[in-house]
Design a protein around this nucleic acid. Structure first.
Length: 974
RNA sequence: GGGCGGUUAGCUCAGCUGGUAGAGCAUCUCGUUUACACCGAGAGGGUCAGCGGUUCGAACCCGUUACCGCCCACCA
């Protein structure tokens, strides 16, 4: 038509497609330049704050981030539009081990022979900083491509000066309260990175293992005669199945190399088999014969008599269970390995060490006042060997000596007893190597103490998990919490603010000067070499990023506590629990004078998995790069997918098809806007008063929009992102595009200028509300349309992202208009269905008659005749009192729709169609009748439910009658 | 060994407080009706894992069984 020329198009006419690659960076840049991401700091507005879970500074955006950040951005944009004073606090985490690894790898790849060791600590840390400045924080740029509206001007890094000061302050205060302490304990040691790690950083993985059985010979009696006892084995019924004289005790182990450090053999106190030898000594059957050690046979509740031989070797320095047993029984702890988990070469010579140990075995009471760390019980032949090598050598040596427990194999040969058996083996989550329990001096946080308040705050609802059941997981962990090992033998991180004098005394202070004061002027101090666990600083993130400890800081006062923490369940322990602990210890105080929780809600979202439900990982090669998806489909499509799939389940299986589908949705929106633009339905100035509308179709769409907005709003308030996205999607595509835009075409093309103007105004206004409604999910395309559609209308009042979120009063809903339009829609749908089912050519226009119509229905047809004819492809739509000849009819509410198509179709098909309808209706009615005949139902079900069923029954009966008469009409035709 | 969660259409999953089973994709049929083929119209497809119980009424609540996940845990 000439319309476009007339209105001055096409210059400003929208392209047929949205081009995300072109538009997204441009739009983002405009937002950022205009300061749209900063909080309004409007004192009248309710503050709303989310602190981002800081990605590792080494990180690149993966699907997990894409989901996590999208959900937060949806909330942030939503609340910002709702007029709150919104801060999204971004930043990155220094990620101790991960970052150190990256830089070390780079040094190695550079091939200049530089390494952490060769550079020395100071220089190495400099290099890490240089790396951080140059290539760290890539993820921020990638976030921007996603449309993330965090306040980048407030970006923080866990090792910024301010945050580092916060770390020192917290450390010192906890130390002074005795909640941080230094201790020599058995810790998880990562031999690759040569550092202690926390329990949480250990992954226990089932691996194939073996269990060997060895004989520990009993020590001879004082008179030199061999010690023996009668070993009796009974079955469940108490029948003796084995009885023999033994001069040894049989021990099962999966780690033979640790035998060198055994301090005792333990049996259960009730184990009758070993009663005769409890308190006696036995010999560790490895090492030079002349200096083998005797260790005591003790009783402890730990050994399970039904497992293995029932006797357990106790190696307190290399096994967490044994450690507990050793501590309970005052058994010395002999460290056998160095920081690379090789057999030790340091300390005293073997012979001397063995002598000390032998003495200790006889006089265990002496061990407590003796430092055994210099005692190295690794025989010369084993020194320097790797764990695995040492293990094999122990096995070989013992077997050669005939001290392995032998069994008869299937072939009748005597062979050493070795059981293949899956064992849970600890691996470092970052290094992937087997963790070695190692006895070292480390710093610990008394987590049990701090967890009390952290637990209480969830119990009493100061903070709530969404979904709620995660609190169980949280409680379960807190209830079994162990001291948190916070020291790491790394370079990169917050150096522990502790100094030692030459006597080894500890002085903890926020800086060296203060430490010196504590120590006295003459003391020569040396700073602790270790750094803190990265999660220690992460735990402070909710307040350290806001300016703590400066309690006068405007942001700290305004934005703490945060509204919600959005994260995946895999870091509830690592991070959520620890933020709770630290927040409730150091956070800004509430009205009751106690530190407040760091956030009111913890929303736990799913993990993103691939299509097959596997965790995405680079090594598996199944990782999808969110940026690739952004390139291909646009950020909006990816974002919408994330929101739509974020049901409160456990995981999300992402498929490209899904993203493609939402890209199509964005195109659909684009084209709807294009249609509106073509019809001069754009950007009508001012608000719209629903009461001023006269056209039912317009009154109806406003109500439908209001319903959709309410649904989306309520869903977002409840973190039901999928419902929120779903409600918006449905309205836009299935209501606005599929029906409203089609229904108004006659009005827009018609001659009633008033109706046309009203419709343009309504369509334009509704479209604007749609932009707002979709904006949190699809910020780019909506902002672009908002902007583009203003070019020929009145100037827009600023960015879409800063527009107020739509709200509606009751006046938005007009039940009569709703009923009327739904009737129109049903009529069109019903006619279309009949036509398609009976194979009427889609292009053919057919005559239709409405029979049995009452006044209201007749009026509806009159009012909407044009659009019904158009959309149902009718050449006429008449009101009749008699069923016309040659008509195929269908029932719509209280009336019958008769299509005069008998000559176009196969009547038997039409009969079959009606028969099918009759059958299913009949079934439904008999069900209803049966239900209503049930006295219990009528008596006990709520009145409204009973009433509803009655109505359904009577409506169904009426329909049945009409269907029957329609069916009879068909019979007359043939 | 403890804890959590899953089993609904061919596939991937929704289904909030129990009241006529839904979506997307896929499939089939039709369609060049001037916003959109990244589209439109229509259709087919489900004993809601099994069994038992509570209830007038169960995909939903309770019990139990069977598979399948995940987390935690010290069986040498």
């Amino acid at each position: 038509m000439a319309r476009s020329l007339f209105y001055g198009y096409p210059p400003a006419m929208l392209d047929p497609r949205f081009d995300p690659a072109e538009a997204e960076p441009r739009i983002y840049q405009r937002w950022e330049a205009a300061g749209c991401f900063k909080p309004s700091m409007d004192t009248a507005a309710e503050p709303y704050c989310i602190v981002i879970p800081p990605p590792n500074v080494t990180g690149v955006l993966h699907m997990g981030h894409a989901l996590n950040h999208t959900l937060q951005d949806v909330l942030i944009r939503f609340e910002r539009m709702r007029g709150k004073n919104v801060l999204w606090q971004p930043g990155t985490d220094h990620a101790g081990i991960a970052t150190q690894m990256v830089v070390e790898r780079q040094l190695a790849e550079a091939g200049k022979g530089e390494s952490r060791a060769s550079l020395g600590r100071e220089e190495f840390v400099k290099r890490v900083w240089a790396w951080k400045e140059q290539s760290g924080g890539q993820i921020v740029g990638q976030d921007k491509r996603l449309g993330i509206s965090a306040d980048w001007s407030r970006e923080r890094f866990t090792m910024d000066d301010g945050l580092s000061a916060a770390v020192r302050k917290v450390f010192v205060e906890l130390y002074n309260e005795g909640l941080i302490y230094r201790d020599k304990r058995l810790v998880n040691w990562d031999p690759k990175f040569e550092t202690a790690i926390s329990d949480l950083e250990v992954e226990n993985i089932e691996t194939p293992g073996r269990m060997w059985h060895f004989k520990y010979p009993l020590a001879p009696k004082e008179n030199g005669e061999p010690e023996t006892y009668t070993y009796v084995e009974k079955d469940e019924d108490g029948q003796i199945i084995l009885e023999e004289e033994r001069d040894y005790i049989s021990i099962a182990t999966t780690r033979p190399e640790t035998m060198l450090g055994d301090g005792a053999v333990a049996v259960h106190p009730d184990d009758e088999r070993y009663k005769p030898i409890v308190g006696k000594l036995c010999e560790i059957p490895v090492g030079p014969k002349e200096s083998r050690r005797w260790i005591p046979i003790i009783t402890d509740e730990y050994p399970d008599p039904d497992f293995g031989s029932g006797a357990v070797k106790i190696t307190g320095a290399h096994d967490f269970n044994d450690y507990q047993v050793a501590r309970r029984n005052n058994i010395p702890l002999y460290n056998l390995m160095d920081s690379k988990a090789r057999m030790r070469s340091d300390g005293r010579a073997y012979a001397e060490s063995a002598r000390v140990a032998a003495d200790l075995a006889k006089h265990p009471e002496r061990s407590s006042d003796m430092d055994v760390s210099e005692v190295n019980l690794v025989p010369d032949a084993y020194r320097g060997l790797d764990r695995e090598e040492a293990r094999q050598k122990v096995i070989d040596d013992i077997t050669a000596e005939g001290l392995a427990v032998m069994v008869t194999s299937d072939d009748g040969e005597r062979v050493p007893l070795v059981e293949d058996k899956p064992i849970m083996q600890p691996f470092g989550d970052r290094s992937g190597v087997v963790i070695e329990p190692l006895l070292t001096d480390q710093w610990f946080v008394n987590a049990a103490e701090l967890s009390k308040e952290a637990r209480a705050a969830i119990e009493d609802g100061r903070t709530e998990f969404r979904p709620e059941n995660w609190s169980k997981t949280y409680f379960n962990w807190l209830d079994n919490i162990e001291p948190w090992c916070i020291s790491r033998q790394l370079c990169w991180g917050h150096r522990i603010p502790a100094w030692y004098d030459d006597k080894g005394q500890i002085f903890v202070a926020e800086d060296e000067e203060s430490a010196q004061k504590l120590a006295g002027a003459g003391a020569v101090l040396q700073r602790d070499e270790d750094v803190l666990d990265t999660w220690f600083s992460s735990a402070l993130w909710p307040f350290s990023t806001l300016g703590w400890p400066d309690e006068t800081d405007e942001h700290l006062k305004t934005f703490y506590p945060g509204a919600v923490l959005v994260t995946a369940f895999d870091i509830i322990f690592f991070w959520v629990a620890r933020m709770m602990m630290m927040g409730l210890k150091f956070g800004p105080k509430g009205e009751d004078g106690k530190p407040m929780v760091p956030f009111k809600h913890v929303y736990i979202h799913a993990l993103v998995l691939d299509e097959k439900g596997q965790k995405m990982s680079k090594s598996k090669g199944n990782a999808m790069d969110p940026l690739d998806l952004v390139d291909e489909y646009g950020a909006d499509a990816l974002r919408f997918t994330m929101a739509a799939m974020a049901a409160m389940g456990r995981n999300i299986r992402l498929s490209k098809q899904r993203v493609e589908g939402y890209r199509n949705f964005s195109t659909k929106l684009w084209n709807a806007a294009r249609f509106c633009q073509m019809n001069e339905c754009q950007n009508w100035d001012g608000d719209l008063d629903p009461q001023s509308l006269s056209q039912p179709v317009n009154r109806w769409i406003v109500g439908a929009l209001a319903t959709a907005v309410t649904e989306t709003t309520e869903a977002l308030e409840a973190y039901r992102f999928n419902d929120a996205a779903g409600a918006a999607y449905k309205f836009v595509w299935n209501v606005f595009c599929d029906w409203y835009l089609e229904l108004i075409k006659p009005l827009l093309n018609g001659g009633d200028e008033a109706a046309k103007a009203e419709t343009r105004r309504t369509a334009a206004w509704t479209l604007d509300q749609v932009f707002k409604l979709l904006h949190p999910f699809m910020p780019f395309v909506t902002e672009e349309l908002w902007d583009k559609l203003s070019e020929h209308g009145p100037a827009r009042d600023g960015f879409l992202m800063l527009q107020p979120w739509p709200t509606f009063g009751d006046s938005a809903h007009d039940p009569a208009a709703k009923e009327e339009m739904e009737w129109v829609i049903d009529a069109i749908s019903e006619i279309r269905s009949v036509r398609a089912d009976l194979g009427v050519n889609a292009g053919a226009k057919v005559p239709m008659a409405l029979v049995n119509a009452d006044k209201t229905i007749a009026a509806r047809l009159e009012a909407h005749r044009e659009v019904i004819e158009r959309m149902a492809r009718l050449d006429s739509a008449l009101i009749e009192t008699e069923m016309p000849d040659g008509a195929i009819s269908t029932v719509l509410g209280s009336s019958t729709l008769a299509l005069r198509i008998a000559d176009l179709i196969d009547v038997t098909e039409a009969k079959a169609r009606l028969d099918k309808d009759l059958k299913s209706l009949d079934k439904e009615l008999s069900g209803l009748a049966k239900k209503l005949a049930n006295e219990n139902f009528v008596a006990k079900a709520p009145a409204e439910v009973v009433e509803e069923n009655r109505e359904r029954l009577s409506a169904g009966k009426a329909r049945l009658a009409k269907l029957k008469s329609a069916r009879e009409g068909l019979d007359r035709l043939s």
